[in-house]
Write a protein that binds this DNA or RNA. Sequence first.
DNA 1: CGAGAATACGAGCAATTACTCGTATTGACA
DNA 2: TGTCAATACGAGTAATTGCTCGTATTCTCG
Lengths: 209, 209
Amino acid sequence: MESEEARPRRRQARGERRMSEILDAAAAVFAEQGYEKATTNAIAAAAGISPGSLYQFFRSKEAVAQALTDRFTAQMRDAHGEAFAPAGLAALAALDLDDLIDRVVDPLVAFNIANPGFKALFARPDMPPGLATAAGPIQSALLGRVEAILAVRSPGLSAPERARSARVLVQIFQAMTPVVVAAASEEEREAEVRELKKVLRGYLAPLDG
Amino acid sequence: MESEEARPRRRQARGERRMSEILDAAAAVFAEQGYEKATTNAIAAAAGISPGSLYQFFRSKEAVAQALTDRFTAQMRDAHGEAFAPAGLAALAALDLDDLIDRVVDPLVAFNIANPGFKALFARPDMPPGLATAAGPIQSALLGRVEAILAVRSPGLSAPERARSARVLVQIFQAMTPVVVAAASEEEREAEVRELKKVLRGYLAPLDG
DNA sequence: CGAGAATACGAGCAATTACTCGTATTGACA
DNA sequence: TGTCAATACGAGTAATTGCTCGTATTCTCG
């Protein structure tokens, strides 16, 4: 997974801490500026270091985004993997549709709210080719899991139909996530989440066995 | 609406033609590069003129986008206003839900396919502040019309509920449009449109009186 | 025809930005 | 303690890009 460190550094205490700080700063700057408009100098400044120092740890702006994506992926797996885990699939199969949606959507929404920089890398339509690959893992992990759930809940679907439906579901989620994250108040946010779930339910109900 | 022309030009035959050519070029470049990555020099080159000539007609890149948006708005009104027109509302009220969706979605899809540059200005999440205003008219026109239809079909909704539902519907459409437009084959495209309609139907059915 | 405005050109400017490089400091380890 | 790599700095560079400016050409109109 990490084949880019041909020569491991020695001073890892300071270094690792710096890298983490840089990623924190990058997440914040990406969240508020978007990927393209975020400048590497701004990220360095937000991390309290010089541009040169940033490039001591990351080869390029894209490498920062890549590392941040990796970190998000790991965080998501650690925090919310349960709901999606293969072991949980059987339990998910027996659930009420509304409960199923809650079980899947709520953790994802919580994660997106806790990590506002996430959607800047996840829900971006104008990714540079390299970054599409970077965000790909998250995207395809989510897709694969949704497909797995569909396979259990809607055995009548052919494989291509299942793939298409999963794509549509993920797309709906991605489209509505920015609105949810940007909600001004808590009530507003809950209302947006309710709408998101309505959309998902409306699409899923006819498919659901 | 057009308060920016304090001093009308004289040679309008050549000039107007050039402006139209520039907008054609801009639509093409925006379509394939996106707004940010599209350079004014590239637009000028695509129009077969020099950068200086472009700026004889448009004060800035943003002004080009603004003018293009205006042209799209007018085209959309001319071509597909009927389906949305106030006069047609009564007819729409009596329709089957599937027919209603066809009536509204099909022209919009056709327009987006015929004008691939449209979505670059319409479905962009990272608009500069000025451009949000530029794209606003299209967005809010569409929103207003969807709201009008909802008012007729779902009289039980409160005004805020109606506004929110309209926003959700437009958002779904925007999110799925790029996939529809980019479809590789005709069958693929039809399948995507079917999914789009399924999503809309699933969300609307419970609301529909 | 002659004048003035509209159109056209394209080299180049000013600002931005991802990234580098020469150098200085810090700290682990012999 | 001395050494050397890791860390840190920040002015500077090359490339990009929106846009300008001086100038040349074309057209309208009297």
